[in-house]
Each structure stands twice: as C-alpha cells, then as structure tokens.
Computed example of a mutant assay.
Amino acid sequence: MTRIALLGAGGKMGVRLARNLQNSPYEVAHVEVSDEGRERLKAGIGVDCVERDVALADADVVIMAVPDRLIGKIAHTFIDRVKPGTAIIMLDAAAPHAGELPERKDITYFVTHPCHPPIFNDETDPEARKDFFGGVKAKQHIVCALMQGPEEHYALCEAIARTIYKPVMRSHRCTVEHIAIMEPALSETIGATLCLALREATDEAVRRGVPRQAAVDFMLGHLNIELAIAFEQFPEGRFSDGALYAIAQARPQIFREGWLERIFDPAAVKQSVDEICNPKAA
C-alpha cells in the first residue's frame, strides 16, 4: 500500500484532500502544526495527526497542502528527511516554476491543480450544481506535470491527484511552465480580473438606476450564451451584428494594445510566481 504524508492536513485545502483520501487505497499520515487545524481535522473527518518526522520517515509520497508562499520554505526543512524515490506532490506551480524547491536528484517533484467544475456541465444533482470549487460532488478536470523523477511516477501521482480532486473527468498532462501560464496568468491575472470587472460594471448599472436583481440576471444570462459562443459550446450561435459592432468599439477603450503579449510574456509569468512566493519583495 502506498503511504502518503499529507502536510497541512488541517487547513482548508488539507481537510478537503484528507476527506477524499478516506477509504482510498492509500495509507495516510496526517500532519498539521496548528492546534486549530488539528481540531478542525478531528471534528471534520475524525482523524488524528502525527508528528511530521514520523510521517515522513515511511512516506512513499508527500502531499504539500500548504500556501504557495510556504511551499519552497517548508520543502527545505524536510527534504533531507525523506527517503530516496519519494514523490513530492504540490498543488500549485508557483513555487516550482519560481525555482523555490530544494535540489535533490533522487526524488520526484509532481505538480497538479484542479480546473474546477466547468460552467458548461451535465450536473443534475442540486448539491453538485452548488459545488463550485469541486472535489466534493461536482465533476471537474485536472492538470498534472512531472517536473522531475522516473516516468512510472507520473501514473502513481496522477492516480493520487484523481483521488484528492475526485470526481475527475479529464486529466491533462502538462509541463510546470504550462500550469504556471494557466495560473496565475490565464485564470487569475486575466480571468479573475475580468470577472471582477464584470461585477463592477454590473454595480455601475445599478448605480445608474437599474434594479439590482435585473442587472445581475441580465449579466449572468448574457454571459452564459456569450461564453458558449466564444468557447464554441453553442456551434449554431453567433454574435449579432449589433454585438459585433459594440465589441469592435469597446476593445480599444477597454484593452491596451499588446496586453496579451505583456501578460503571457515568460518573464512576466516568472515575475508573477516570484511575487506570489515572496510577497514582501513585490
């Protein structure tokens, strides 16, 4: 049986992972440094924690369910305590892409991240439809990258990734750089920023007298069909001539020329992950 040391098991993400690892084909040792986290884990899923060095001594796999900015720092504190051939799984590409991980040639580094449940889905269970984050009821896709280590460790770590993020549909094999491009650049720098801009625009319509619920319903309904058209989920759908005219007029007002090139420039992505891992230097 594969033995897993789950670091940060009492955190918000750690508890999610610990719950999905219950009744799985893995033996899990839960590690949490805070009393609050230990209590949360005990109350949430009824498991006790063990000391870190005890968990690491027998671990075949270490999962780091800790904040991005701490991944590199924490990894340096235990890297000499894991046995050769251990696979270390990280849940985000920031620290690996920023070069924060300690060097050790005889271990595996693996990165995986959830795509979260897609907007366009076939969920019918009311609870699944409300599982926006994923990993509880709603199906989602995931991305995975083998940063270093033997090829056979990809299948081992991907299987664990499918368990901690279940239920999983597609699992995409990527590189660490690919995942860093998708987060933060694609999903946060662009996606989250534009989502907040949409909310601000809706609030502005309300400020100008539109009833709030009408504005919200109008925006979310239009986003549904507009995203379906843009991402080719609605093949027969087309933007109207009026919409195309509005788009052409709006783009130079909203976006500066070359904005995509600037955000996706490798140096910009690297700077972003550096600042995520070292916020005081930002």
Results as ranks from 00 to 15, higher is better:
Thr77His: 09
Ala29Gln: 13
Met90Glu: 05
Pro235Lys: 00
Val66Ala: 01
Ala201Ser: 15
Gln249Val: 12
Ala185Val: 00
Ile229Thr: 08
Pro102Ala: 02
Thr124Asp: 00
Ala215Phe: 09
Met219Val: 11
Val143Trp: 01
Glu152Ala: 12
Ile164Trp: 08
Ala29Leu: 10
Arg170Glu: 14
Thr175Ile: 05
Pro252His: 04
Arg173Gln: 13
Pro184Asp: 04
His30Tyr: 15
Val206Phe: 02
Trp259Glu: 13
Pro102Ile: 04
Phe133Cys: 09
Pro235Ala: 04
Gln148Arg: 15
Ala246Pro: 00
Ile160Pro: 03
Glu39Ile: 06
Asp203Thr: 11
Leu41Arg: 01
Tyr245Gln: 11
Pro118Val: 03
Cys144Gln: 01
Asp274Thr: 05
Asp203Ala: 11
His76Gln: 14
Gly242Thr: 06
Met1Leu: 15
Pro25Asp: 12
Thr108Val: 01
His222Asp: 06
Ile79Tyr: 05
Ala55Val: 02
Phe78Ser: 13
Arg207Pro: 04
Glu200Gly: 12
Cys277Ile: 01
Leu244Val: 09
Pro114Ile: 04
Glu177Cys: 02
Gly135Thr: 03
Ala180Leu: 03
Pro126Thr: 07
Ala248Lys: 15
Val216Tyr: 08
Phe234Ile: 05
Val66Trp: 05
Val66Gly: 04
Val62Gly: 03
Leu260Tyr: 14
Lys12Tyr: 03
Cys195Glu: 13
Val273Asn: 05
Lys166Phe: 06
Ala228Val: 07
Lys137Ile: 08
Ala59Glu: 01
Gly85Gln: 05
Tyr245Ala: 10
Glu152Pro: 15
Ile229Lys: 15
Leu244Phe: 10
Ala243Lys: 05
Asn20Ala: 09
Leu196Lys: 15
Ala161Leu: 02
Asp131Thr: 10
Arg104Pro: 13
Val269Arg: 06
Arg16Tyr: 06
Ala180Gln: 06
Ala267Phe: 08
Gly258Val: 09
Ala65Trp: 05
His116Ser: 12
Phe231Asn: 13
Trp259Ser: 11
Ile119Val: 14
Ala9Val: 15
Pro118Gly: 09
Arg173Pro: 04
Ser171Cys: 15
Ala281Ile: 10
Asn121Ile: 07
Glu127Val: 10
Cys49Arg: 03
Met169Pro: 01
Met182Ile: 11
Ile63Gly: 03
Leu156Tyr: 07
Arg19Ala: 14
Phe120Gln: 00
Gln233Leu: 08
Lys280Tyr: 11
Leu56Lys: 04
Ala180Thr: 03
Asp131Phe: 14
Val216Met: 06
Arg81Val: 09
Arg129Ala: 12
Ala250Ile: 06
Lys139Glu: 09
Pro114Leu: 00
Asn20Glu: 11
Gly258Gln: 12
Ala138Lys: 08
Arg173Cys: 03
Gln22Cys: 10
Ile74Arg: 07
Glu32Met: 11
Ala192Asn: 07
Ala155Leu: 10
Phe239Leu: 14
Val50Met: 06
